[in-house]
Simulated scan of single mutants.
Amino acid sequence: MRAATGLRRRRLVPSLLLNGALPVVAYALLQSHMDSVTALALAMAVPVGVTVAVFVARRRVDPIGAVAVVAFGIALLVLALSGGNDLVLKLQEAVITGPVGVACLVSVAIGKPLHLLLFKMLDRRRPGRAVPVPASERRRVANVVTSLLGTTLVVHALVLLVLALSLPTGTYLAIARPLGLAIVAAGAAVVMWYRRRVATPDPAAR
């Protein structure tokens, strides 16, 4: 378990550098040779190209890179439809995290938390193995986890939107990606802490 965790962490650092630092460097090198929209598009395309190349060569999916690939594809489509507005490229992650976050919060509001679907899928795929959350607690846990995930993703999208509207492109690239990843990492840490807390039996209840 610890070896697997260590391996994931070692893979995470290059991924963060690739998706966070490389676009900043690429944009700084390209902006003096072309218009800002083209430079931004090419800078954002660099980690996408590396992610695709790694997948083709090693058949290994980088989760952060995979999100970047999907977001970049959506951003290019919207960019074409918007007539070349660089704000679209700045918000390529937010166009995913924002709607997904809102969907999570709406699912809780209507009494059908998305995280509850995960429990049901696990029950169907692993009928012989117990999910580490009692059935009686699953809806409450699903409500909390889905709310945490939704809030994290909505905050991520809103922060990126504010930065995109208030900062020049170069500064935005230097600040937004690291800050966005920090927000998502903090939200994921809270979710993991809560799930471990729920899964751990309370000695006082025995």
Rank of each mutant, 00 (worst) to 15 (best):
R11C: 07
D123G: 01
V190K: 04
G111F: 08
V78H: 01
V69A: 06
G101A: 09
R126F: 14
G49M: 01
S107H: 06
P134H: 02
A43L: 05
A188C: 12
R195G: 06
R138L: 02
A188G: 10
L181W: 13
V95G: 04
L77E: 10
L173W: 05
G111W: 05
V133D: 06
G180P: 04
R129W: 11
S15C: 11
R139K: 15
S15N: 08
R60M: 11
R195V: 15
R126N: 09
R177Q: 11
M1T: 13
P201L: 00
L77K: 07
M1A: 09
V67E: 05
A45C: 12
R196A: 05
D86Q: 10
L118Y: 05
V162P: 04
A71G: 15
L173P: 01
W193S: 05
R8W: 13
V95D: 01
R9E: 07
G170L: 11
G65L: 00
L29M: 14
R195Q: 10
T97V: 11
L118G: 06
S36Y: 09
A21W: 03
L29K: 13
D86P: 15
V46Y: 00
R196S: 10
P47W: 03
L105W: 04
R59Q: 15
A45N: 06
A4V: 13
N19E: 09
P14Q: 07
R206V: 15
P113L: 02
G150C: 13
R129C: 03
P63F: 01
